[in-house]
Design a protein around this nucleic acid. Sequence first.
DNA 1: TATTGTTATACTCTATAACTATA
DNA 2: TATAGTTATAGAGTATAACAATA
Lengths: 142, 142
Amino acid sequence: MTEIDTTGTRELAKALVGLSHHVLHMFNDIGRGHDLTAQQTELVCAVIVRDRVRMSDLGKVMHLEKSNLSGLVDRTEKRGLIMRRRDPEDRRVTYVELTEEGRQVATSTHCEVTRRLNDLVAQLPAEVQLSLTEVVEKITES
Amino acid sequence: MTEIDTTGTRELAKALVGLSHHVLHMFNDIGRGHDLTAQQTELVCAVIVRDRVRMSDLGKVMHLEKSNLSGLVDRTEKRGLIMRRRDPEDRRVTYVELTEEGRQVATSTHCEVTRRLNDLVAQLPAEVQLSLTEVVEKITES
DNA sequence: TATTGTTATACTCTATAACTATA
DNA sequence: TATAGTTATAGAGTATAACAATA
C-alpha cells in the first residue's frame, strides 16, 4: 500500500461518486423536458425495456422498497403514463404497463438516456468499456 | 453501427445505471450504521477530504441547489456533526467544518466508503482503473 | 406460513422563488 | 449589480411498520 496507490484509489473513488451523480442526474435533466421527475423517468425507462414488469421486479431494478415503489407508481399512474394490471393466474402479482402516452414519453426519454450514456462512455477505450461492462454486471447482480 | 455494437452499448448503459445506484446506495448502507442519511453521510465525507469547505463548493460537489444544501447542513448541524463558520474576510461566505463527533463519524464512514469502492474496482485491471479515473474526471468536471 | 402489494406516518429531500446581507 | 446564503412552501421521495389478500 504505497502513497501512490492510496492516492490512486482515492481519486478513483472520487471519480466513481462523481460519475454516479452524473448518471442519475441525467434522468433528472431528461425528465424535466417531459415534466417528469428523475424517478418517474427511470420508471418508464425500466418498464419500456421490459414491456411488462412485476412491481417486485421493478423494486429490485430500481433499489426501492415495495412501499416506496407503490407511491411512485401511484404518482406516475396519476400522471397518466402507466397502468397496473393484476395477474389473473396469481392474483397477488401486479404488472405495470405503459399507457399510449407513457409509451411515447418512455420511447423518447429512453432514447435520450441511451444516447447520453453512449456519449459518456464513447470516450473510454473499447477494452475499458468491455471490462467495465463485465465487472459492473458481476457487481450489480448481487 | 452493427447489432453487436448496439447490444454492447445497451448493456453498458444498463451497467452504468446499475453501478450508479450501487455507489449511491453505499452511502445509505454505511450511514445507517451511524444513524445518518445517505446525504448526511456524503456531506461529512465531502467535508473531511477537504477539511473546510464553502457552502457554494459543497453545492457543486454534491449537485445540490444552495437552498437544499442549506437544509441538509441545518439537519446535519442539528445532528451535531458539523458547524458553520463565517469567513471574516468576506462575510458573505460560510465555511462548513466538522465537530469532534463529526470528525470521528466522518473518518469512519469515509474509510468504509473508500474501502468499498476499492473492493468494487479491485476487480478491474490496473490500467483500466487508471483510464477510468482519467476519463471520468474529464467527464464529471463539466 | 410465506409472498405480493397497499396504507399510514413521520421524516428527509428537492425545486422554485423571494428574501437578506455583503461586496 | 452580483454573489453567498437563508427562508418559505409545496410536492416528491424514503424508511418503517402494520395491514389485507392470495398462495
